[in-house]
Every structure is written in structure tokens, then in C-alpha cells.
Write a protein that binds this DNA or RNA. Structure first.
Lengths: 138, 138
DNA sequence: TCGGATACCGAAAAATTATTCGGTATGGAT
DNA sequence: ATCCATACCGAATAATTTTTCGGTATCCGA
């Protein structure tokens, strides 16, 4: 568990929001679960642009903050399911709004960001928490 | 200029939004400008919880992305003013929504975050982009 | 001429976050 | 017995962001 050196201001709403769902893959995970991908292995398959470990970690943080809950079915085969709590569901429209803003302005932003590219012309790791369109992370 | 090694997915709206206004102090700056703090020295005074250099840097990124514009008055004394572009203004309601969500849930989040505190009981550097209430960063 | 206010910027260091690599454990199927 | 799928976790490393420290330059007023 990482111990931060500089305390964050949890009286600021924006800081709180960013802490809870601002991680690189958290919106993606929330999106995927809200669409019905509930089992860890499903999430790992859907969100193929990062490693399973990363998803596990961000998922456990989402649990810590009460965004998702975990149901473990007893017996075998191992069966675990995550789902959004009411708190988690309340995040979805916000992510949607963020996504809409970004989608609307992405071309404009892209233009102004090109100087900042990587050296090689590698492909990005797609995030695609496409809360607007159909396809999930993939 | 930092050259990133891993390309980001600028086709994802959320990634775009986070890139443009997701920095630690950017919401604070946008908020302050939207309230009328326009000169750099004003911003430095208002947002006293981080150093002037940090504000300058984040401000220049906001300029790069067309969120704010800079007007330089000729002659003396030196007079520079920043203001929000239409793009910048379109961010304000989103920050407001983020802030409202966080404010509503901050107590809940705080409880679940206490294990993660710093060793000493230092004060946080307040962000307080209080887009809800009156006080600006401070 | 010196000190202060203005506005800004480079670059090292520190802090934080993301990624990788490998490990644990369970039980079913071959 | 061995392999596979399930689900998870520790810890080192890499990547990125934030912070600090110092610097530039202009002109005014004392």
C-alpha cells in the first residue's frame, strides 16, 4: 500500500471524484461492468489493452471506495461477479458527460497535441470507454 | 517538453477530457479565471497552495489546448490577462458536476481512505476549486 | 544604481501512478 | 501426474506528473 507524502485535499469535490474514478482504467472498468461484463476473466478479455494485474488492482480500489461490490459464489467452478453499487451507478452519467465532451473536441485537441507524440509510431493502447456508442473497451 | 513513451488513446473521449483538464491544479485555474482572477499574479495569490511555477506550467498547457487565451497589453506596467475561450467555458459545468458528486460523497470516501494517510498529520494543500460555493481556491 | 513588481522558463528532483513479472491457491479434466 | 481455468496478490521497475529551485527579462520608483 503506497503511503503518500503529500496529503490530498479531500474537502475538494473534484479531488474526491478524481481519486475515486480518475485512474487510467477505472472508467473503462466501470463502463464494462455497467454493460454486463461482470466476471474478472470477462473484464480481462474485454479490456485487452492493459494487463489483468492492472485491472485487478484498479478493481480492488473501486471496491475499497464502494463503487463496485463483489459476489463470490460458493463451490465450484470458481465464480466471482462484480457489480456497480448505487454509488457506482451514479458515476456513469458523469463519465458519459466527460466522454461526450472529449469526443466532441477530440479532433481539436489532437491537432494541438501532435508535437507531443512518441518517437516511434506505435499504436495507442485503446481505452475506449465508449459510453456513447456501443463497443466496449476493445 | 516531456516525450511520452506510451501513446495515449485520443480517440477515447474520457482520455481527451482528462488530458485537457485533468491535471492537479487545472480545475482550480479554470475556476479562478471563470470567477475573474485573470492576471497571472492574481492567480498566484489566489491559488496559494502550490507554487507560481506550477500554475504557470498548467496555465500554458491550458493555452496549448485552447482552453484559455492570453491578452498582453502593450506598454507598462506589464499587464497580462487570461480568459476562458468558449471551449474553456464549456468545461465549467462539467467541473461543477464533478465537484458536486465529490462533495456529496466526500465523507463516505474519506472514511474509506483513512488507512492511506500520510505518516505525519500535515495539512493538505487545499485545492478547493469550489465551483459550488463562493470561495475560490484558498 | 539598486530593489521591487511584473511575467516567464529550464531542468533536476521528488512524488505518484502504471506496468511487468512472477508468485499463490483451488479443483476439474485429460 | 499434469495441465488448464479460475481468481488473486507482492514487489520491483518504468513511466508520468508535480514540485522545487533557480534563472531570464523589462521598466518603475527611490
Amino acid at each position: 500500500m503506497y503511503k503518500r507524502k503529500i496529503k490530498e485535499d479531500l474537502d475538494c469535490g473534484i479531488v474526491v471524484a478524481m481519486k475515486v474514478f480518475g485512474g487510467k482504467w477505472k472508467p473503462c472498468i466501470i463502463d464494462a461492468i455497467s454493460r454486463g461484463a461482470k466476471r474478472p476473466s470477462e473484464l480481462h478479455r474485454e479490456i485487452a489493452f492493459t494487463s489483468p494485474r492492472v485491472i485487478d488492482m484498479q478493481l480492488s480500489e473501486l471496491m475499497d471506495f464502494g463503487v463496485v461490490t463483489k459476489q463470490t459464489a460458493p463451490g465450484f467452478p470458481l465464480y466471482v461477479e462484480y457489480s456497480l453499487t448505487p454509488l457506482g451507478k451514479s458515476i456513469v452519467p458523469i463519465l458519459k458527460q466527460l466522454g461526450e465532451w472529449g469526443t466532441k473536441n477530440k479532433d481539436f485537441v489532437k491537432e494541438r497535441a501532435e508535437w507531443q507524440s512518441t518517437e516511434s509510431d506505435q499504436q495507442p493502447r485503446r481505452n475506449m470507454h465508449q459510453l456513447l456508442a456501443d463497443p466496449i473497451c476493445q
